[in-house]
Design a protein around this nucleic acid. Structure first.
Lengths: 348, 348
DNA sequence: CTCACAATTGTGACCGTGCACATGCGAGCA
DNA sequence: TGCTCGCATGTGCACGGTCACAATTGTGAG
């Protein structure tokens, strides 16, 4: 019944054309939804495709059209909750639009590795890039390589603010800090992220701005590495060396590690110390006490990133402009300063 | 100095050939490390490439060779810690071998979505697939579509055990359960994952096997959805309806939610109830109390998956065979049954 | 019935690379 | 000297689509 002699290679449009009794160009027209094709012809061709299990060859199409329909995602720490969530959203949106997504993950972020990853993506002839690797260095490399394709970045950068799409980090940090100040805290420590990360820097900036606004003094922030382990050790160190009634951690993981350290030291949260995190990871609401934090809608961020990239690539899309609004989620880890508070250093 | 007249299109091997004064085929030989090329010729060509900023066109290469050098990764829940980590490892290993990685994420796992995602990957002419979508359904669809490319799966399945590469889930579950039994627990509840997930099913099987081995009775496991929120509500429900001294949760998130519920109820862990999780996510060591859990080396799993896929694709690689060994990490959330234990139901 | 014009379909070249095969050339050997 | 052989290189086509343009068919008005 079916006319497919088992050739070794996959069927091409010419095979389909032969079976349908038309020229290969007519088949191509069906594939590209060309308007002027007789309905009966189209039907015949579609049936031939079905019969041969025809599948268009993307490589051939890319070669002839000069378009790969592929976008690249450059990501650092793609195993972290937020980035992972955003990447999934980008991939989903891209697939819906018929784009392929090629990812390159940075395990280390030295310029050579960054360049290597970018070269890899460019080799694939990506038509656009989404950058979720938030180090300023990445943008330096991007500029140096003089990339020919458009790109967008989830994180804001000093130089390319217009392309930033993530939640407004500075605003989020200000909200968190304001919350602590409103509760009466005056000695607030910031447990920051690595300063070569734009996000970490933005969150610290927001913190300092708000502290300044309230005419408070503060110790220099502690520079961490995002991990819960670091939060734990930083907590131990803090208790040994500083006096404070509240901590704003630059992400939830460090905040959770900190809670652990405070608990180990026999301190009560928020009785003795209030803690705020950032991101609102799923377990944040189940720590003890549940963590007050700044929520980001990572999925919306990812979707928006892809839409913005499409726009940057010259496609007609309506993009929701501006950053996604962060949201303060008040849970149990923050409370008022105890009226009669003993300095921690004295007690510990 | 440089001879590049700014044509609109990217330089091809013919442009390089012209500049170097050789034929395009000789350039191609340089690209493919052909042995018999005069060193001086090769040097001249390399310099011409450099001068023109030549970048090989993957689409043309794929078309001509019939190989895309792309592998596909089908993943569900790629925002979860374990899968995300493994995907990153796969991507890393693949890139090192010059392969591109195309991902398709399943937000919902109904057959239509699975098929859609697979079609998307096949459209890209992937040469192999890594399946991190652990539902049995996925394999049904794979079989039905009669995929022409080789694939490996991180999770074991009833039908394709040979291709399983992840840590031995059954063994891990047995270790966790054994640990509780060794501590004297007799009334152990299993908080399972969704049963259409192979992993969830395997962990439950391990649990039941060990329970059976020890001649213990048990209530039917509670079927959850992996989330911390579910763990929390399940905990509340458990306290209302069952008597038990220990819980083995099928993943850390549910375990953490459970800890929250126990804490809310004023119970002590491990004083009143012992809890074991599975996965060893980074915050597991910073919950209160720190969570006893089963550690999986997700990175090793990802690397091994890619190596196994290469092998399945007919490449010569030495693959570490067999599953990665899980490891029980005993922390503070498990302890002996209190000598004079009051039934929880009475106290609560 | 004829012609202009639109709708539909066909023809051949081209995209950039790799393969099969042909060619040129120098060395080794009888 | 002439012949064989192997290295180095060149020639032409195939891969599977798309594009520009040509050719054919169909349609309605005059």
């Amino acid at each position: 019944m079916s006319a497919d002699l088992p050739k070794d290679r996959a069927p091409s449009i010419r095979d389909v054309a032969r079976l349908a009794g038309v020229s290969h160009q007519t088949v191509s027209r069906v594939l590209n939804d060309h308007p002027s094709i007789r309905a009966t012809t189209k039907a015949r061709i579609l049936q031939a495709m079905e019969e041969l299990q025809y599948r268009p060859n993307q490589a051939a199409r890319a070669l002839s059209k000069g378009r790969s329909r592929t976008i690249g995602v450059l990501t650092a720490s793609s195993a972290q909750y937020g980035p992972a969530r955003s990447v999934a959203a980008i991939e989903d949106a891209a697939r819906r639009q018929g784009y392929f997504v090629d990812t390159a993950n940075l395990s280390v972020a030295d310029p050579a590795a960054i360049e290597d990853a970018l070269e890899h993506l460019l080799d694939q002839a990506v038509e656009g890039l989404v950058i979720i690797a938030p180090q300023e260095r990445v943008f330096d490399v991007l500029e140096r390589l003089d990339i020919a394709v458009p790109y967008v970045s989830l994180q804001s950068t000093r130089k390319h603010d217009l392309r930033a799409l993530a939640a407004d980090q500075i605003l989020g940090a200000k909200m968190a800090t304001r919350h602590l100040i409103d509760l009466g805290h005056r000695e607030i420590v910031h447990l920051a992220g690595p300063q070569d990360w734009n996000e970490a820097e933005a969150r610290m900036r927001g913190f300092l701005l708000e502290i300044d606004d309230a005419d408070l003094m503060t110790h220099p922030p502690i520079l961490g590495d995002w991990t819960a382990d670091f939060g734990y050790f930083a907590g131990q160190e803090l208790l040994r060396s500083r006096d404070f009634s509240a901590v704003f951690a630059a992400n939830d993981e460090m905040a959770l590690g900190l809670l652990h350290a405070l608990h180990d030291a026999g301190l009560s949260v928020p009785g003795d110390v209030s803690v705020v995190g950032f991101d609102d990871v799923p377990v944040a609401s189940h720590s003890w006490p549940p963590l007050t934090t700044v929520h980001q809608d990572f999925e919306a961020i990812g979707q928006r990133a892809f839409a913005a990239l499409l726009a940057a690539m010259g496609m007609p899309v309506e993009v929701a402009v501006g950053p996604v609004a962060p949201r303060l989620v008040v849970r149990g880890s923050t409370g008022p300063v105890p009226v009669s508070r003993l300095p921690l250093l004295k007690r510990y």
